[in-house]
Nucleic acid binder design. Structure first.
Lengths: 193, 193, 193, 193
DNA sequence: AATGAATGAGGTTTCATTCAT
DNA sequence: TATGAATGAAACCTCATTCAT
């Protein structure tokens, strides 16, 4: 008797998730370029062939990871929007971003690594662009939040906020040892609110 | 009449610089991994074989580039030290960094890409560590400058300054279009001085 | 109530024919080597696994197609034998062959492709040999027909007839556009009868 | 001291010829699809890598062989054109074609195999089309020869001649044993001239 | 009878590096 | 010093076949 379609679908779903998990692990450890399909398959505990049953290639794995990342970003911004005041919304965004980089600096490093890939790498570039586009879209929302706060130049103020935030994330991800993230967070936020 | 040893050394040095220049161009365009030795040799206008006469391999090329980058950083900090006041010194550092990223964002992107390379990539990691170490050393100098300014917590203040600076550099390098670098620079510096 | 053995056999036969039909379609479109078992199964509307229930592998599919082709050839020769005179018999053979290549040049192309497969390809070679053997056998019958006509050298005459016929089939199959098959047929047949 | 450019050019030329020779041998033995790059490289006595130094892939090898074949065809037609009378020209073409297929039936088989490749195989199709185009071009010349002979319908007559010729070639290449090529040649030519 | 997940061998291709010249 | 032919390991990817369900 063959498996039912639902059963197969469940198997497929679990396999895809298993592979995606293995992929980000390996990509983080070795980098996208240096990681081989074999590495990912071995980490996932499956054969190379099966991996190709689920993903059309290495680039497709990256695409999947980037789409997940985008999903995360969208989710955070949605959650932020539920907060009652603009300040609380911005605080939520900052807290969340810093918490994430603190919990898993290597993940942030990885996406930063991808975003700084040379343009000539078409495959990476294409998918990396998706992430960039989404961040552009979200930054518009952030400008709106500043606008609601009634600050003089919301666009500039929003960019200022983002640069400060990303600066902290970048430095923490690069030098996680001895980086006084909590103190700096306080200092940074105090200059804005 | 044979060339003197000095002359030979000078010629050798120029050849190395030519290759290094070609290497960073190609690495920026294609990325370290995707760039091939052949690409670099062709760009330098020499043969693969001759390249190996000057550099022991691809990793050695990267090492040379990173050493140059370190040299640059040291140089800037030295120049900053010649300025009369701490504030002027910090302004010099900031102006220089922002000017550089504005002039050649791809160079900044490249080194950021290298610095976010995963630890598991031994070759890159080893040389990337050199850069990291140097930046740690220079950040100590920067703390000293803040200390001379007499601010309450020079260490924290220095890190705050660096995060703000690197945040701007990162964002400009990632979204060079429509990024109001001059305005943000003014805004950022005004919060510090 | 279980199906009778005959019924089962009939169902099995129909399934095999369905698969065979799909196989020749796919083989003609992609070629034997390039076609995948998956392609064939998908075309037949069944799963890969089920295909293996009916055929022992890719080579077996080819074998089946070649056996069908042989069956066709035998059939045509049998039908020809029912014609009253030798000339009518030969005319029937020629008409049939040309009609077939005109209707489905790609089928003729396919079997020609198979017949020109190199000897080293053991699998194809083995089955292709079956076809060759059958054609040799049928050509003997054709010699008999010429013998009945009372021509001087029936063997040579028969071969001459075959070369002319196959030459036309080959050229029509290779250049179906603008090939004046009817005119040539008349011209060719007029030289023989 | 590096080799001179001429020396390198000579090495390249010889290597290419060596590889081409190996390629047609292997393709004839195994067929284009079944032959692997490794097979060709091993037959040529070189490494896989070196083969890629000279040919951009398997398809490029095929292209080279087909271009050679076209060269041959053009050459034969040129030589035929030097004969004084149309009949001698046609005789030359026929003699040459039959002589070739008799000497190396496997070569004729191979190109026939390629020409009967399914259209869906884009790579083979592209190069095979070159051969087809050339044959179309040459067939125009052949029509001219018949026209000079003053026959009623030179186009049809030329096609008739070609089908007869190719029919013989096809049958000889398929059943080289016991095929009375000389006798058939005489018979066939006697019907035309 | 029926499915498609799973395997692994085998194919194509790239490229850092070596070396004869 | 200088060249580029030559190597081979390692990467990506495909697909005939098996097998648990």
């Amino acid at each position: 008797m063959p498996r039912t379609r639902e059963e197969n679908e469940r198997i497929r779903q679990m396999a895809k998730e298993n592979i995606s998990r293995a992929a980000i692990e390996v990509f983080i450890e070795k980098g996208y370029h240096a990681a081989s399909i074999d590495d990912v398959a071995r980490r996932a505990g499956i054969s190379k062939g099966l991996l190709y049953n689920y993903f059309s290639g290495k680039a497709d794995l990256l695409r999947e990871l980037i789409l997940s990342r985008i999903e995360e970003i969208v989710q955070v911004m949605k959650e932020a929007a539920t907060k009652p005041t603009p300040v609380e919304q911005l605080m939520y965004i900052a807290e969340h971003a810093l918490h994430n980089v603190q919990e898993r600096p290597s993940v942030y490093r990885f996406y930063l690594h991808i975003q700084t890939h040379p343009e000539a790498d078409e495959v990476v570039s294409t998918y990396s662009q998706l992430l960039k586009d989404e961040m552009t879209r979200q930054s518009k929302h952030q400008v709106d939040i500043f606008r609601k706060m009634g600050v003089p130049n919301p666009h500039l103020q929003s960019l200022h906020f983002s640069t400060a935030l990303h600066g902290m994330m970048l430095m923490y991800a690069t030098y996680p040892e001895n980086f006084p993230l909590p103190e700096l967070k306080v200092k940074m936020l105090s200059t804005f609110f």
